[in-house]
């Protein structure tokens, strides 16, 4: 499958610079993107080797293309996707957030929803590639604008189980290891490495 990155072979990298404690936003035109404890830190790519730099670029690009601002936070005290996403939604000026785990599992959340609910969930991390992350970002931004985006089509693959189920469990356990209890979420800035011009 063609991805927007095929013409840019040099792999982009990202480092996350901590800015300070994450705060509740007031801008109605922002989406908070919440990263799991090991995202772009202990881990550098998803379960199917999509670089975290690319995941983040595409999520943020999807949001920016809709004219909405992305704000990044890192959640450190849990690796539960629903919790990560819900914390972010509560901090988002628009009430909309995107939460993402290191292995790629992603969720769009909204502040008024119950924690275990969500607007859109992408549970099959092996099936998420760069274009899907772009669409997720775009949809989150559209929700923030009060529009009605068509849900990102979810895919399914019966043979994902034999190939990825155990690795997913392993990545999940590793992410758990990176949890820093009692440390609140921090606001971060993404600094992209080589390959970018902007």
């Amino acid at each position: 499958m063609t991805t927007p990155t095929t013409t840019a072979p040099p792999e982009r990298t990202v480092t996350l610079r901590e800015i300070g404690p994450a705060r509740r936003g007031t801008r109605p035109d922002e989406v908070v993107v919440a990263l799991s404890p090991a995202f772009a830190g202990h881990f550098s790519k998803t379960i199917v080797d999509v670089p975290h730099a690319e995941v983040l670029r595409q999520l943020m690009a999807g949001i920016e293309e809709q004219g909405v601002t992305a704000r990044l936070i890192r959640v450190r005290d849990t690796a539960d996707l629903a919790a990560i996403s819900h914390i972010a939604a509560k901090m988002s000026g628009s009430g909309i957030s995107v939460g993402i785990l290191s292995r790629g599992t992603t969720m769009i959340h909204q502040k008024d929803l119950a924690r275990l609910s969500n607007l859109e969930l992408f549970p099959q991390s092996p099936l998420l590639d760069a274009p899907v992350f772009r669409m997720i970002g775009s949809n989150a931004a559209q929700y923030a604008k009060g529009e009605s985006p068509q849900p990102v089509p979810t895919r399914n693959d019966q043979m994902a189980r034999p190939r990825w189920q155990a690795k997913a469990a392993l990545l999940h356990l590793k992410e758990f290891e990176c949890i820093e209890a009692d440390r609140g979420p921090v606001e971060v800035e993404a600094v992209f490495g080589p390959g970018t011009a902007g």
Binding site: T2, T3, P4, T5, T6, T7, A8, R57, A61, G195, T196, A197, G198
Partner: peptide, 14 residues
């Protein structure tokens, strides 16, 4: 054309 990353396209135009 398709396949061009937005960063790369903007850079090429600039």
């Amino acid at each position: 054309p398709p396949g061009w990353d937005f960063d790369d396209a903007a850079a090429a135009i600039n």
